[in-house]
Design a binder for these strands. Sequence first.
DNA 1: ACCGATTTGTAAGGCAGCTTACGGTACGGA
DNA 2: TCCGTACCGTAAGCTGCCTTACAAATCGGT
Lengths: 233, 233
Amino acid sequence: MDSPQTASNKLWFLKHIRLFEGISSSEMQEMEKITRMEEVKKRQPLYLSGDPSSNVYLLKKGRVKISNTAANGKEVTFDILEPGEVFGELETLEDVPRSTSAETLDDTLICVIPRKDFDQYLAMHPNVTVKLTKLIGLRLRKIQSRVEDLVFRDVPARLAHLLLELRKTDGVTDKQGIRLRAKLTHQEMANLIGCSRETVSTIIGQFRDQELIQMDGRTITILDEQKLSNLLS
Amino acid sequence: MDSPQTASNKLWFLKHIRLFEGISSSEMQEMEKITRMEEVKKRQPLYLSGDPSSNVYLLKKGRVKISNTAANGKEVTFDILEPGEVFGELETLEDVPRSTSAETLDDTLICVIPRKDFDQYLAMHPNVTVKLTKLIGLRLRKIQSRVEDLVFRDVPARLAHLLLELRKTDGVTDKQGIRLRAKLTHQEMANLIGCSRETVSTIIGQFRDQELIQMDGRTITILDEQKLSNLLS
DNA sequence: ACCGATTTGTAAGGCAGCTTACGGTACGGA
DNA sequence: TCCGTACCGTAAGCTGCCTTACAAATCGGT
């Protein structure tokens, strides 16, 4: 087994971070110098809304949930990040408190970069800054489409949309259909599409009855992608 | 009256663009060279969703609405831009089709920058790139809070929130309270908070009855900011 | 100052999805 | 393999908002 604590391994991991796609390896080496690698167990908070924005993170292994919780306990999930993503950089750019919380969903491996070092690094590596701008731009477009979903679509359509999105990042084709590795709870799906847990249960049940999906324990398999797409209308 | 077509005036305007806050005037001069100034009458589309992303825009005078329309004709408004904003740069960064539409609300003055020139300019002016990243970051946080609004709050709270936000960019204090220069129709407010026009009419009526706001024609004056804030809870 | 076009006010009826409630099921740690 | 805890399924009742409908008011261009 590789030991992820070694510097050589850190470099190997950096290659798989989207921020460094198309970036020279000497520039990655410089980034390597300012990062600290950490293993974080599942279900651990990395930061909470309101915290000072002292670090930027690179996700190596496992998934991280970016969310926010209202006073009454209700939660929205903005994104579930897969390995390769940068996160936590938004607020550090302006040095304002965290506007979201981040929590690991699995046992993860993350790189931690102190805010100041990240700022300095960006100032010295303009092409990485351009890449970062593009990544933030992609995220903006993604969340714009979340707003459209909430305004234009009802819950069945939003849920179908979620499943079809998960298929892209998380789907594995097998004999019956496309299996989603995600294993989200109904509550987590509800937080992603903005509805109650009970409604997700009901609609998932309808999808199962209509043989659009199949459930094996907590694993979802998409059986009929076409009919699911039709629900988006 | 100043003639906005002259180069000297273009430069004067650039100083008032947020993207160039803290940027040297020699760098602004270079930007000046690649821009084309245009006057656009009110209610004109600048681009539509699906169009090729050929230009970036700087808004000098008047307001521009960034929105999207569903197949059934329903519309979401993502933002109403005030003078000083950059827009249309998101999709040009990646050279993908427009994901939103842009339309003037007033008679406007805009600067048009061809995509390639903007790209080149960014490559040569890293500090402007950093500034752009920060601006896009701010927009991302703004739209995240729109998602929170849609999920956490009911229509009265969302409308109160909208009015309080408009007060920041658009509010003028006068003897009765804070007058909003915006003059939005109920339909436009509905598109901003994700509800029907009729519901806005009803809730605005209730706010008036409770003397939280006052209406003079299409002008809204906030009478009791405190009580309006309480509605956000 | 006029007139067509746009916007506003209001109200009844319907329904999607929330809330409340509770029993059953699966999971994961000891 | 047991047991506590978390998650799931389902259903009845409620409600906030949408839809439909139409009349009144206001706007803006000539």
